[in-house]
């Protein structure tokens, strides 16, 4: 049952539909086992933005305070997009490679175990 309501045909207003973001979309991103940042981030990006631009201008900015950020060997990084294994294509736009509104990206950096080796 989608809702228990007095009116049988009740529907709710979808607060976070992509149209409400003025040409942008939400992308969530988390760095697994690095909890200096206590939760994954919510980022805002133009729908047609290329992945390399998104990464350089938005993602790097969010994570760069972490002392291991500069040590990441990007050739060994693994990615999940909405729970499925994923290989980002730098020159393709977010939408054209399936990074849609409210998609969740998470990445793993083998060999980097966080500050003090404690997953921080």
């Amino acid at each position: 049952m989608p809702v228990y309501a007095l009116k049988p045909d009740y529907t709710g207003e979808i607060k976070d539909r992509v149209e409400n973001f003025h040409g942008n979309q939400l992308v969530y991103i988390g760095w697994d086992h690095h909890l200096l940042f206590s939760s994954p981030f919510s980022l805002l990006a133009p729908i047609g933005m290329r992945f390399d631009v998104f990464f350089k201008e938005i993602v790097s900015n969010a994570f760069s305070q972490h002392p291991e950020w500069d040590q990441i060997d990007w050739s060994s990084v693994t990615w999940l997009l909405d729970g499925q294994p994923f290989i980002p294509q730098p020159e393709v736009s977010l939408g054209d490679q399936g990074i849609n509104h409210k998609s969740f990206l998470r990445f793993q950096t083998p060999g980097l175990t966080g500050i003090a080796g404690a997953g921080i």
Binding site: P2, K15, D16, N24, L26
Partner: peptide, 18 residues
Amino acid sequence: EEPEKYVQSWLPVHQIYQ
């Protein structure tokens, strides 16, 4: 159990981005 209710969540981060 009731998606039609929670699609209306006023999520502060999303509201900021809107």
